[in-house]
Amino acid sequence: MSNSALQFKDISFHYKNSNENAPEQNVLEKLSFNVKPGEFISIVGPSGSGKSTLFKLITGLEEPSFGDILINGESYDNRLGRVGYMPQQDLLMPWRTILSNAALPLELKGVKQQDAHHQVMGLLEEFGLKGTEHKYPSDLSGGMRQRVSFLRTVLSGSNVLLLDEPFSSLDAITRLTMQEWLLDQWEKWKTTVLFITHDVDEALFLSDRIFVFTKSPVKKLEEVNVPLDRPRKLRDIHHPEVIQLKEHLLDQLRARVEL
């Protein structure tokens, strides 16, 4: 088994400008980093700093201009379907029941519908969704819909999951509840998670390490180790050492916005 779940090796990426006379927009320049199996990594940075581009490259929706991306130690010509992806919006199909929505990744992989539904039924209780199988997305709260979306992401079969601000649309109390729930699920499934957020408190509570997008184009990510043991509670982010780290992160992000 590889000692790397995800690796960027000298990745450069630029967007071509529709105006031939305008310069290309460089986003990443010879960026390298390594994520170990089972790590929880949060990615923070201002809007437009390259966070979503990073996810597009990992999923294969974009291809690097230079360099190589390895998933579980392997390089692929086509990375589509190699990682699980959970976007900001749950993207549940309103005409499908919760059972059918959750089973979609299995069906796309060729699993017979009956077998896919049987597999999902065994997981609904574990994901706090028992009794919702015959309901529709409109019948559920925002937090419950995000649980369905996360279950669908897990059922992609990949050990690398990309979560793009999945709780940004939730109210404050639901968001805190979902953060605790997500950590419980991560510890059970032993997956590798990359989590985009604008919330520094959220990043500190969830993560082993935090990647900070600062200068553009991104040549190197500032890496911050979170000094908290696991399991952890929300109140742990109020430790003096963590508060000091939070101030450092906020200073970094303010400096980026002021550029």
Rank of each mutant, 00 (worst) to 15 (best):
L31E: 04
F127L: 14
S75I: 13
D229A: 10
V160H: 09
L57M: 07
L155S: 00
L161N: 15
I71N: 04
V154C: 10
D10K: 03
I71S: 02
V160G: 08
S141N: 05
T191K: 15
Q7W: 11
A5C: 09
S216P: 05
L161R: 13
P37I: 15
N21A: 12
K36P: 04
G84W: 00
S65C: 05
F40R: 12
E247I: 09
H248S: 01
S49F: 08
G143K: 00
L182G: 13
V27F: 10
I58K: 03
E125F: 03
D68E: 13
S65N: 10
H238T: 14
I173V: 12
F127Q: 08
L80Q: 04
L140A: 12
E180W: 05
L92W: 04
L6H: 12
H248R: 02
Q185V: 03
R175A: 08
L194C: 04
M1T: 07
F213V: 10
K51R: 06
Q7V: 03
I11V: 10
N21R: 13
R175I: 11
P46L: 14
A102V: 02
A172T: 04
M178K: 02
L92P: 01
L108V: 11
S18N: 15
L104Q: 02
D115T: 05
N21Q: 10
E63N: 13
S149I: 12
D77N: 14
L183A: 13
M178Q: 09
H239E: 06
M144G: 05
K30Q: 07
L80A: 15
P137Y: 15
P240G: 11
S216M: 12
Y85S: 06
R256G: 03
L245W: 02
S141D: 00
V154L: 12
A172C: 06
K130R: 05
L170K: 00
F205N: 07
V200F: 08
E187G: 10
D184P: 02
S168G: 06
K16A: 06
N17K: 13
L31I: 08
N225F: 11
L204I: 11
L80P: 13
R96I: 04
V193E: 08
P46A: 07
F127G: 05
S207I: 10
